[in-house]
Amino acid sequence: MSPEVYMEEKKEKKGTSSTKAPAGATQYKQHLVKFQSLIALFMLCLVIGLLSDKFFTVANGWNVMRQISVNICISVGMTLVVLTAGIDLSVGSILALCGAITAGLLKFGLEIPALDMFIGFTVLGAILAGMLTGTALGAFNGWTITKFKVPPFVATLAMLTIARGLTMLWTEGFPISNLGETFSYLGTGWFLGIPLPVWISGIIVLAAVIVTKKTRLGRYIYAIGGNESAARLSGININRIKIIVYSIAGGLAAIGGLIVTSRLDSAQPNAGMSYELDAIAAVVIGGTSLSGGRGTIMGTVLGAIIIGVLNNGLVLLDVSPFWQQVVKGFVILLAVIIDKANSKGE
């Protein structure tokens, strides 16, 4: 063995041992960061529990879970979008439109005067039509963003207005109510002792975790958000992935719309107003970077739970709803500041 080769190998060993230490440190830090939101949630629950004896009751627990299930549906889609370094402002409006479409089809069916046709809808048919609408609008978002290079903020802002306008047109500005018992079971029913909306959001979360961790699509989402240029050079069809992601976001917003409509047994034309902001808040509190490529579904779920518990707690403590908004804003700020401080060392 020549001395040169020997030297190289020696260096190699050195290099390995020296890279190990910072790796351990970052891993430790990552764990800390992961538990940070959990600790925050735990403390929050503790404080509210101490101040209000109604907080730690089974009924209130399900109540909170049911309330946040809609936000979880939307935020899961939002997480995927944000992971690609995008944003989707249109989910609130899509939620309203899809809820209204399902309600309208269920109640009145679809009349096509030009063809002299009437189509009646079963519950399942109406639900599918609603979800299809949401997915299609999401795909439209993705199409404008990739084909015409419209910045996601602008494209989805436009869709926010478009979908809201379509909702008003469809409902003529009036709520569509009394949708039948079968449909209202979706939002109010229980299955195996757990509210149905919680089941739905739980399944969505599970599916999203699998997609992000275990599938090609998930891997591509992280790669695109982390470095779009490197992803393109790796042969990934970026436009396709983005369209899929925005479609998923739209479809999940539609499911949120179904839950809301079913729970109220009524599709409100102004449902889902500013829901997109709650979803973005959950994503951000959950530690997903708005510049893409970094974040997890479970983080977002935690973020949504923190927001939900906070809302619930402030109501139980009889805090004015105006103050609730102020508090929520500061929580978002705090979360981002902590996140920045954590990632500074990297």
């Binding site: 992280y222 982390g226 470095n227 240029s229 490197a230 992803a231 050079l233």
Partner: peptide, 12 residues
């Protein structure tokens, strides 16, 4: 800029 997704791990 074009070769790696720096935030992801070596395996990925």
């Amino acid at each position: 800029k074009d070769g790696l997704v720096l935030g992801l791990d070596v395996k990925t």
